[in-house]
Design a protein around this nucleic acid. Structure first.
Length: 511
RNA sequence: GGUGCUAUCGUCUAGUGGCCUAGGACAACGGCCUCUCACGCCGUAAACCCCGGUUCGAGUCCGGGUAGCACUACCA
């Protein structure tokens, strides 16, 4: 019996979507598309205390920007959140009634029990007994429905006493988890504790319960998530069994973690701040703590570059191919080609990917994207055609759109200062005389195009037996302010005759 | 501490017992191109964690060790 492939990405709205989460979403998406299945998005907001306003919108917008399409659940559509599908609601905080009946089912079947131990009591217990664990060995010493008379439990519950529902893990059983990436993982149930499944304080389940109930109800066929979930996978298997859902239990695949570039450990928000690169897809203004986190989009990354970069962090195709479109990824992606070991986040390679994709964009498109940077430098209403033209001359030397400014600024603003190093190396004793003569040559050209200029100026240089390098570099310094930039006739072409001559004259008075 | 996962150039990785004299990419370095700076192209350097075992043969399989990471909440 082949089940329809249905996968889900289920983030918590506790802040900006971490880049590792983006990769998880991507792999889920690729898997779903490849199998002609469904990609669901569910919001796991069962921890009311960690909710951050705007986070949900952020997550959906980020996926939308990256082109990770959602078939069911919550998604961004024309800037607004919409819910689609038959299995809603898709926010766990809106599914309280659903969870109630499943908590009751577990309670009634004896797979779970009510516990009244307060957080303080548990803390005291942990302090008193090293390695204390709420499990088969200790639960009979605690305040719960297994140790208290039924009437007392009921009285306390009715009185409004805060309680939790714990899963009753049967001891000494080897639980097998089949993982699509790692193979068979076996854990003895003795090391599992009686996990809290539901808390009456906010009338919400914890992740473990909500996750299993929702995946079952939403008919999820494959759970593809980060490796940090591997240790709790046996608990989830036990939960499926307790509900009697083992026959439709999803397949599991635990993805390797994204590690920090230096040293080891999971990549975190702080690493981005520390090392100077974004760890979030979009810029995020956290309304809860007032912090601002930089994003890939705002840093000038192209979504297709981020996708390609992320896809290869933990996955590799069969050949040497490194550049993949989303369509190619969908075609080639395979869980059994996902690495098992964590991948250090290589920001430098990310830059290279962006460089590659930047070259593929048209000059006009890049010009549009460059406008805000120009505006930031006081260039408010530039000639679009001219902007596209100078981008065409310089885009192959940048990794990001904003970097275009350093390469093109002299096209927009005439130099007033001249780079000392360039001067020292390229501005010789004869340069003022050369430039004065060049001025006459330029004034006399019949046509201001690259070919004509090149012919006339090169002939003049040859006739005078000047060095090409010495004249051209001095000329370049006059126009650019330094010994850098595109081909000189490309520059004069953009600048035009009048401006070119003006810059040479100005340089003559200033150097 | 306990449990689990993992281990190839600095980094991402190819490798599924002989095609491995370990391949590709990023970064580094050198050269070419050239009016400059870049881009690009060409090239150089750079790795199988250790110890045993299986086998005619091990980067590849097995065991042990070591190391790294994750988990160990009324967070996800």
């Amino acid at each position: 019996m082949e089940r329809r492939v249905r996968v889900r990405f289920a983030p918590s709205p506790t802040g900006a979507l971490h880049i590792g989460g983006v990769r998880t979403a991507l792999y889920n998406y690729l898997f779903a598309r490849q199998h002609g299945g469904d990609m669901l998005l569910r919001i796991e907001d069962t921890d009311s205390t960690r909710f951050v306003p705007g986070a949900e919108e952020y997550i959906l917008e980020a996926l939308d920007w990256l082109g990770i399409g959602i078939d069911e659940g919550l998604r961004m559509h024309n800037g607004k959140i919409e819910a689609i599908g038959e299995h809603g609601p898709y926010r766990q905080s809106e599914r309280r009634e659903i969870y109630h009946q499943y908590v009751k089912q577990l309670l009634d079947s004896g797979h779970a029990y009510i516990a009244f131990d307060t957080p303080e009591e548990l803390e005291a217990k942990r302090a008193a007994i090293s390695n204390f664990q709420y499990d088969a060995r200790t639960r009979m010493e605690m305040r719960n429905s297994l140790t208290m008379p039924a009437e007392e439990v009921q009285a306390l519950v009715e009185k409004g006493e805060k309680y939790v529902v714990r899963f009753k893990v049967e001891p000494n059983e080897n639980v097998h988890v089949h993982d699509l990436i790692r193979g068979e993982v076996v854990i003895n149930s003795n090391i599992l504790d009686d996990k809290v499944l539901y808390k009456s304080a906010d009338d919400l389940p914890t992740y473990h319960l909500a996750n299993i109930v929702d995946d079952h109800l939403m008919e999820v066929s494959h759970v593809i998530r980060g490796e940090e979930w591997l240790p709790s996978a046996p608990l989830h298997v036990l939960l499926y069994r307790a509900f009697g859902w083992q026959d439709t239990m999803p397949e599991f695949a635990h993805l390797p973690l994204l590690l920090k570039p230096d040293g080891n450990g999971k990549l975190s928000k702080r690493d981005g701040d520390r090392l100077g690169f974004p760890v979030f897809p979009l810029e995020f203004h956290n309304q809860k703590d007032g912090t601002v986190s930089s994003g890939y989009r705002e840093s000038g990354y192209l979504p297709e570059a981020v996708i390609n970069f992320l896809a290869l962090l933990g996955w590799h195709g069969t050949g040497d191919q490194e550049l993949y479109t989303m369509e190619e990824l969908i075609k080639e992606f395979s869980l059994d080609r996902v690495s098992k070991a964590g991948a250090k986040f290589d920001y430098e390679k990310g830059k290279w990917f962006n460089h590659q994709y930047l070259q593929l964009r048209s000059n006009e498109e890049l010009a549009e994207m460059f406008l805000p940077t120009l505006a930031a430098h006081g260039i408010d209403h530039p000639d679009r055609k001219m902007v596209a033209q100078v981008i065409g001359l310089t885009k192959d030397r940048v990794n990001f759109v904003p970097e275009l400014w350093e390469q093109t600024n002299f096209f927009f603003v005439a130099p007033t200062e001249y780079d000392e190093k360039s001067l020292a190396k390229r501005w010789k004793e004869d340069s003022p005389r050369h430039m004065t003569e060049l001025l006459e040559v330029l004034e006399g050209v019949p046509s201001w195009d690259a070919e004509t200029l090149d012919n006339i100026v090169m002939n003049w240089i040859a006739a005078k037996e000047y060095g090409v390098g010495i004249v051209m570099n001095a000329f370049r310094i006059c126009l650019v302010g330094a010994a850098r930039g595109p081909h000189i006739w490309a520059i004069t072409d953009v600048l035009g005759k009048e401006e070119t001559i003006k810059r040479v004259k100005d340089a003559l008075t200033r150097i």
